[in-house]
Design a binder for these strands. Structure first.
Ligand SMILES: [Mn+2]
Ligand SMILES: [Mn+2]
Ligand SMILES: [Mn+2]
Ligand SMILES: [Mn+2]
Lengths: 144, 144
DNA sequence: CACATGGAATAGCCATGGCTAAATTCAAGC
DNA sequence: GCTTGAATTTAGCCATGGCTATTCCATGTG
């Protein structure tokens, strides 16, 4: 049945997209958080990142090595973490998207507390098209 | 600074919730898919699950062992996979939530194709409260 | 009723993302 | 300038979720 096979392929595509988004979740959260820490406190230290994420510090150390290897950050040993141009770009995009998703949830009637919790996961699965829809919704809500 | 520490704890909570949702994503997708296959074709075979998910068959085999161990399914060797009562319950809940999320995205103006793709990931991060908001939105949209 | 074949099981590899425990090292304060 | 404590690094463990290659075996067809 060619129909069935084609159908499988179509369905599989959404799972593939979700898996690929899942792989990027952590990278986006780390970079956004590092940007926040730098902007708020002038530096981003492993202990602070760990405390904000709710994980152990060596977990952060391992992740930072990966982010370095992939060119998103630079590290000065025993000093803080710094964003490369690419890292800063990803952080900004993630931060913007995160804010829109959280504001959208609030606008549609979710309590601020729940919006905060849910947005942390939802943000990573919102495509450009959906994000635009959310933005337009917010604009219209602001008018009313 | 106690203020800062408390603040960290609050922020960490959303990351914890997102991590915990991430751990359940696969379980929910598998059970929902197995229920679909059983309802549509009368049985759920590893090859079919693999084709629908877009992964290799041994990947499915390994995951099914885990689902068995955790009491969500039973397996008859070389026959299909069957849902336990608990497995069926999780599947139904996931299916319902998935449908609401996808319908909500469409209702708010996202194209059906993008809604299908994004819903596959978003669904797992939508809390009960947010789901209810989405449902109410759909009801109101239906009235208009 | 034999047996071919397609699905299932197994083995073994890798990357990711958690953890604890221990060793290092930097820097602040005495 | 020494000391010491906190932060970082390192080492090593585990579970999850992918993969390929291979073996196995139940069933349905001839
Ligand atoms: Mn975020
Ligand atoms: Mn997030
Ligand atoms: Mn689903
Ligand atoms: Mn899903």
């Amino acid at each position: 049945m060619n129909e069935t096979e084609a159908d499988d392929e179509v369905r599989a595509e959404s799972f593939r997209q979700a898996r690929s988004a899942r792989r990027l979740e952590l990278v986006e959260d780390y970079l956004e958080l590092i940007a926040d820490l730098i902007d708020d406190h002038g530096e981003a230290r492993q202990v602070d990142i760990a405390a904000r994420l709710g994980v152990a510090q060596p977990t952060v150390a391992k992740m930072l090595r990966r982010l370095s290897k992939d060119g998103f950050i630079t590290q000065r040993p025993y000093r803080g973490v710094f964003l490369t141009e690419e890292g800063r770009a990803v952080a900004e995009r993630s931060r913007t998207r995160h804010r829109i998703v959280e504001a959208f949830l609030c606008a549609v009637g979710v309590s601020p507390e729940t919006a905060r919790l849910d947005a942390e996961g939802i943000e990573h699965h919102v495509s450009a098209e959906t994000l635009e829809v959310f933005e337009r919704f917010l604009e219209r809500a602001a008018d009313a």
